[in-house]
Amino acid sequence: MAKPLNAIAAAVKQFEAGNVIVNLPTERADEIGYLARSFLQMSKRLSSQVGDLQAREQHLQHLAHHDPLTGLPNRAMFQQVLETMVDKARADGSRFCLMFIDLDKFKQVNDQLGHVVGDQALQLAAMRMRASVRGDDLVARLGGDEFTILVRSFRHESDVTAMAQKLIHVFDQPFAVDGHEFEMTCSIGISMFPQDGKDGDQLLNAADAAMYRAKLGTRSRLEWFSDLSRSAP
């Protein structure tokens, strides 16, 4: 009697530790076997419920940090990653860049073709951005038609310029949504840490200012904040 009861007690400890339950005397036809089978069924149900709760928690975490329309990281996650990158760059003396991207003509598309087409256009724009950057660069949607890209590493500023130009060229191709074909280009402002800002907010504001300068031109342009500050009186 003691041996099968000890096996059940050991199974309880295994379950508490999150381990696979083994060596239960489930084959017995007496009350010990019934108890073992009942405990095994209960442990499977509880494990399934715990798995469901963990999946729901992960889903909620994803929703808290990602834009529901495009699936991109949202402003909250962008700010979190940006501050982490600032701390790292301060510690090791490295550099990184922030691109602020605004979609040209999006308001016109949204107003003339409706929000459904506008939403699909944003989704397609997000896909083009993700496909145009490296795997370790972060593309985020701040809201509306405003996006950011955190460029984690580069050798020369010209490498970042080439990345931005590639992104602009990707938007040269017309968009097609629900039988509608339209153009939607982008304007890009670029700032660099630590030259253009001592913290994340300053860096974002610098890239934003450079982006607005780019939009004052012919659209579908990029502008470095450093060029903007040098040209200021």
Rank of each mutant, 00 (worst) to 15 (best):
R90G: 10
R90V: 03
R90H: 11
R90Y: 04
R90L: 07
A91F: 07
G93H: 09
R95M: 05
R95F: 05
F96Q: 01
C97K: 00
C97Q: 02
C97A: 15
C97L: 02
L98H: 00
F100M: 14
I101H: 01
D102G: 11
D102P: 02
L103E: 08
L103Q: 03
K105E: 13
K105T: 14
K105P: 00
F106W: 11
F106L: 06
F106T: 05
F106N: 02
K107S: 14
Q108R: 15
V109F: 09
N110C: 11
N110Y: 10
D111P: 11
Q112I: 13
Q112N: 15
L113T: 04
L113N: 11
H115P: 11
V116T: 12
V116I: 15
V116N: 08
V116P: 00
V117T: 14
D119H: 07
D119Y: 09
L122V: 06
A125L: 04
A125F: 00
A126G: 13
A126L: 06
M127F: 11
M127G: 13
R128G: 12
M129C: 09
M129F: 10
M129V: 03
R130D: 06
A131L: 11
S132P: 05
V133S: 07
V133A: 10
V133G: 00
R134L: 07
R134Y: 06
G135I: 03
D136A: 14
D136F: 08
D136S: 14
D137G: 02
L138W: 02
V139W: 04
A140D: 04
R141N: 11
R141P: 11
L142S: 02
G143V: 05
D145K: 00
D145S: 06
D145H: 01
E146V: 01
E146M: 02
E146Y: 03
T148H: 06
T148I: 05
I149L: 08
L150I: 14
V151S: 03
V151W: 01
V151A: 04
R152W: 01
S153V: 07
S153F: 02
R155V: 13
E157A: 08
E157K: 03
S158I: 12
S158G: 06
D159Y: 05
D159H: 13
V160C: 08
V160S: 04
A162I: 01
A162L: 13
M163K: 03
A164H: 07
A164V: 07
A164F: 05
Q165G: 10
Q165C: 12
K166R: 15
H169Y: 12
H169F: 09
H169V: 13
F171N: 01
F171H: 04
F171D: 01
D172A: 09
D172H: 15
P174S: 10
F175Q: 04
F175V: 09
F175M: 14
F175D: 08
A176N: 11
V177M: 09
V177Q: 04
D178R: 01
G179V: 11
G179S: 13
G179W: 09
H180Q: 15
H180C: 13
E181P: 05
F182H: 07
F182R: 10
T185L: 12
T185M: 14
T185F: 12
T185V: 00
C186V: 15
C186D: 05
C186Q: 12
S187N: 12
S187E: 10
I188P: 06
I188N: 02
I188E: 06
G189E: 10
I190S: 07
I190G: 03
S191L: 04
S191P: 13
